[in-house]
Simulated assay, not measured.
Amino acid sequence: MQGPGLDELVRTKKFLFFGGKGGVGKTTMAAATAVWLSDHGYNTLVVATDPTVSLSSIFAQEVGETEITPIGTERNLCGLSINPRKALGMFQSRMNTMMDGFSTMFGSELLSTPCTEEIAAFDQFVSFMGDTEHDKVVFDTAPTGHTLRELSMPFDWSGYISNQIESRRELSEVLGFVYDEGMIDDLKQEKARYDAAVKALSDTDTSSFNLVLLPEKLPIDETERAVTDLGGFGIRVRALIVNEIIPQDAIRGNAFLERRRATQERYLNDIGTRFRDIPRAEVPLFDSDIYGLDALRKVGGVLYGR
């Protein structure tokens, strides 16, 4: 690790986010971090917002999609995998209650925009940004592009809803519909929830957004774009985790591994140049799959110390 210790970073922040390109090991790093924190006495919740991954697989046990699930025999570790389709049902139910009577008049258009399912998942994610039950909340986020869309869409969606309501004021009056100003107030409160969530993401006192990458060209390029794009939301990347580095002592004269490691070295130097101001940690390529608490503890030991 270069710069401040990564263990200090996770000890001092309430919300820990792990993002990056698909397939670089975000879930592994998030799960390993959650286990490490739990082992060190923190009441920890790990939340997966990526619909393509499974906390159940990496923890080798069932992890709920609607209810928070205890993990292992640890008394202070639990998890939840947000399922966008199930989140959509809860989101629609809440919105229908909030806008009762309005959708009867205007149909279901307001809850059937192309990105509603993603907004619903983000809406559930937002609820955990107000968590008061856990010492630490670890987020395994969707691939970077998806995460950035989720950060921007709630505001586009909120604006869309407000515009729809405003544009139909006159129509509602013509049709004799009694317009409820409380609906706009409710929508303003929804917007405020999203504003607060993104503000919490950018609050370096409480949150840390970390990116995982491989020592390869495409992940490095995407990481560079992500650092810039996240900066546009006021979110500063606090640490990089470079995953799957071939250990030197595993090469043992193997020409193929020597070439691969030499290539990785070039990319590690590139990472050091491009992201010189961001602390980083390096995680070796392990000789077996990483799943289950014991394996995750090995990764946590590398990241944060034993």
Results as ranks from 00 to 15, higher is better:
residue 2 Q to H: 01
residue 5 G to F: 10
residue 10 V to N: 02
residue 10 V to L: 04
residue 15 F to E: 03
residue 16 L to M: 10
residue 20 G to A: 06
residue 27 T to S: 08
residue 29 M to I: 14
residue 32 A to I: 00
residue 34 A to Q: 04
residue 37 L to A: 00
residue 40 H to C: 04
residue 44 T to W: 01
residue 44 T to R: 01
residue 46 V to D: 04
residue 47 V to T: 10
residue 51 P to K: 01
residue 51 P to Q: 06
residue 57 S to L: 01
residue 58 I to C: 04
residue 59 F to E: 12
residue 60 A to P: 00
residue 63 V to I: 09
residue 66 T to V: 14
residue 67 E to A: 06
residue 68 I to N: 08
residue 73 T to N: 07
residue 74 E to H: 13
residue 76 N to W: 11
residue 78 C to R: 15
residue 86 K to A: 12
residue 87 A to M: 12
residue 88 L to G: 10
residue 89 G to Q: 13
residue 89 G to P: 00
residue 90 M to G: 14
residue 91 F to E: 06
residue 94 R to P: 02
residue 94 R to T: 09
residue 98 M to N: 05
residue 98 M to G: 05
residue 102 F to W: 14
residue 103 S to F: 15
residue 120 A to K: 03
residue 120 A to M: 04
residue 125 F to I: 09
residue 125 F to H: 02
residue 132 T to L: 14
residue 133 E to R: 11
residue 136 K to D: 06
residue 138 V to D: 07
residue 144 T to S: 13
residue 145 G to F: 04
residue 149 R to N: 14
residue 151 L to H: 03
residue 152 S to E: 02
residue 153 M to F: 12
residue 154 P to I: 08
residue 157 W to S: 01
residue 158 S to V: 15
residue 162 S to H: 13
residue 162 S to D: 12
residue 163 N to P: 02
residue 167 S to C: 08
residue 173 E to L: 05
residue 173 E to K: 03
residue 177 F to N: 01
residue 184 I to R: 05
residue 195 D to F: 08
residue 203 D to N: 13
residue 204 T to P: 00
residue 208 S to H: 12
residue 210 N to P: 00
residue 214 L to H: 10
residue 218 L to C: 01
residue 219 P to F: 10
residue 226 A to L: 05
residue 232 G to N: 05
residue 233 F to M: 03
residue 235 I to T: 00
residue 243 N to T: 08
residue 246 I to W: 03
residue 248 Q to P: 01
residue 248 Q to C: 06
residue 253 G to I: 14
residue 253 G to A: 14
residue 255 A to M: 13
residue 256 F to V: 13
residue 260 R to E: 10
residue 266 R to P: 02
residue 268 L to D: 07
residue 270 D to R: 07
residue 272 G to Q: 11
residue 272 G to C: 08
residue 274 R to N: 11
residue 278 I to E: 05
residue 281 A to K: 02
residue 283 V to F: 13
residue 291 Y to S: 15
residue 292 G to T: 03
residue 292 G to D: 04
residue 301 G to Q: 14
residue 305 G to W: 07
